[in-house]
């Protein structure tokens, strides 16, 4: 039998976001992964940096490398990632254990899906994440002001 060529049409990692008209939850899926990777990267860096203490080097001490405003901003981004990842993670725990997706229903057009059913949970969780992010932003702005003003 003649061998037929085929073209592999797998979307790959770009298919997470760009190759289609996708919905809201798909972008949350991507953001959850990205923030997860960001937090993991921070955690690895944190272990690496604090391990310098064994050599009596304190990189996080005042006037040292990690007190540059750029690193403070990076730390702030990690905090924002944490706020989103934590509360979206809670939503996912509820949803992935089937508690917020509703019961099976007769599919009558226009179809209602579990996506709309879990959306109130999403809104509540994102409000919590926003409150945490605002509180953290306040703390960040104060500490940045002190640094720029030469306080600490």
């Amino acid at each position: 039998m003649e061998k037929v060529n085929r073209y592999d049409n797998r979307l790959g990692i770009l298919g997470w976001a760009f190759k289609g008209r996708w919905g809201f939850e798909r972008y949350l899926y991507i953001l959850h992964r990205l923030t997860g990777l960001g937090i993991l990267l921070y955690f690895l860096m944190h272990i690496f940096v604090t391990s310098f203490r064994a050599m009596n080097i304190y990189l996080w001490a005042p006037d040292n490398f990690f007190h540059h405003p750029l690193f403070r901003f990076g730390e702030y981004l990690v905090f924002l990632a944490f706020a989103f990842h934590a509360f979206n993670g809670l939503r996912l725990i509820f949803v992935e254990l089937g508690f917020a997706v509703g019961k099976p229903i007769e599919p009558v057009y226009p179809y209602k899906t579990s996506l709309t059913k879990q959306r109130p949970l999403f809104i509540v969780m994102m409000v919590f994440a926003a409150i945490l992010a605002i509180l953290g932003s306040y703390e960040f702005v104060i500490s940045l002001g002190k640094m720029v003003g030469g306080g600490q």
Partner: peptide
């Protein structure tokens, strides 16, 4: 599955596979 929910959104028969997978 991490509930991107796209399967349920595009299903032309209203099957809601995402719901089935979570349950």
């Amino acid at each position: 599955c991490h509930y991107a929910g796209e399967c349920s959104r595009v299903c032309p028969k209203g099957v809601d596979p995402a719901k089935a997978v979570q349950i």
